[in-house]
Amino acid sequence: MKSAAASALFAGPFALATLSEGRDGPAFPALVTADGRVADLRLAFDDDRLTLRTLLDDWQHALPRLRALAHDDAAARLPLADFRVRAPVEPRQVFQSGANYRQHVIDLHVAHRSPGDDRSEEERRAEAAEIMDRRAAEDLPYVFIGLPSALTGPYDDVVLPAWAEQPDWELEVAAVIGRPAHRVPVEQALEHVAGYTIANDLTDRATVFRRDMPQIGTDWLRSKNAPGFTPLGPWLVPAESIADPGNLQLTLKLNGETMQDESTKDMIFDVARMVSYASQTARLLPGDLVLTGSPTGNGMHWGRLLRDGDVMEGSVTGLGTQRTRCVAEAAS
């Protein structure tokens, strides 16, 4: 799908993208300027095999060259509208955050009533609020692993699997790693972030918890990792263009109706804390994604889940807008 140049609005003088000519054309890394013009980075860096991930492998040296290219009026440019916009990066690892927006977690706690729990909504909300306060005080983020194969482009159709009974949306800010990070302190964590992009981390609520063995707990493989269940992009916006990742507005519209509209101020753990926490166990690599959780306003909150033909439009301050259409998979 080709996108209009008007959708190229983002913070700063440039962003990065992965583009192709048509659906099946070879993908290539590009620099996109705010007026919707494109520079092929393979030509600019004289490297036919360049990808955004290999660019991120040498982010420290690549960034000054990208700044210069963005301000070079003589550089060759093409209209963005001539190309298909794909997911900006192909990460080796995807780190996902759960229960990281205070109001969202309280809403889910109320929506997922346990069998036999006859307490009032007010009592269950008070319990959830107490849990959130305790987590924040004990400094315990919740991070799990996603699959890169679940990623799809920001304008691609999203296939709803026939087995998914309660597919739900979860708009998120994703940090893109630009320097290897292992056991980094919170104070240094943002130095390892190259930039930010948008992720819609879809979840089938019906398969989050194992019904056959409740004691096992959550089943993130089944509920979150169907092919294309994580639309990503459109842009990788350099971190230097985002003044405060802790003050961005996330807005998701479903068929034109606003469902999520919340600030990252409601995060329990900010981006730096999430990156630092993930790095205490794993070694984060350039191009890896750290998804930072989703705010209140999901389908479970509204009592309305995704259906065939639904159109989701997700925007984040400074990061642009993605637009995806849901297509139901035919039952086998």
Rank of each mutant, 00 (worst) to 15 (best):
D73A: 06
D73V: 04
A74I: 03
A74M: 09
A74H: 07
A74V: 05
A75L: 07
A76P: 02
R77W: 05
R77M: 01
L78C: 03
P79D: 12
P79M: 10
L80H: 03
A81K: 07
D82A: 11
F83W: 05
F83C: 02
R84E: 15
R84G: 05
R84P: 04
V85T: 09
V85E: 10
R86M: 11
R86T: 05
R86W: 02
P88R: 05
V89A: 11
V89Q: 06
V89R: 02
E90R: 10
E90K: 08
P91L: 14
P91T: 14
P91V: 14
R92S: 07
Q93N: 15
Q93A: 15
S97I: 01
S97D: 02
S97G: 10
G98A: 12
N100T: 09
N100K: 12
N100Q: 13
Y101V: 03
Y101P: 07
R102K: 09
Q103P: 04
H104I: 07
V105Y: 12
V105K: 04
I106H: 06
I106V: 14
D107A: 10
D107H: 13
D107N: 15
D107T: 13
H109P: 06
V110K: 09
A111V: 08
A111W: 04
H112W: 15
H112V: 08
R113M: 03
R113F: 00
R113N: 05
S114P: 12
P115L: 00
P115W: 00
G116Q: 11
G116L: 06
G116H: 12
D117G: 04
D118I: 10
D118N: 13
R119N: 12
R119A: 15
R119C: 12
S120V: 08
S120Y: 09
E121V: 12
E121A: 12
E121D: 15
E122L: 11
E122N: 13
E123I: 03
E123P: 03
R124P: 02
R125Y: 03
R125Q: 15
R125A: 15
A126Y: 10
E127F: 03
E127H: 11
E127K: 09
A128L: 06
A129F: 01
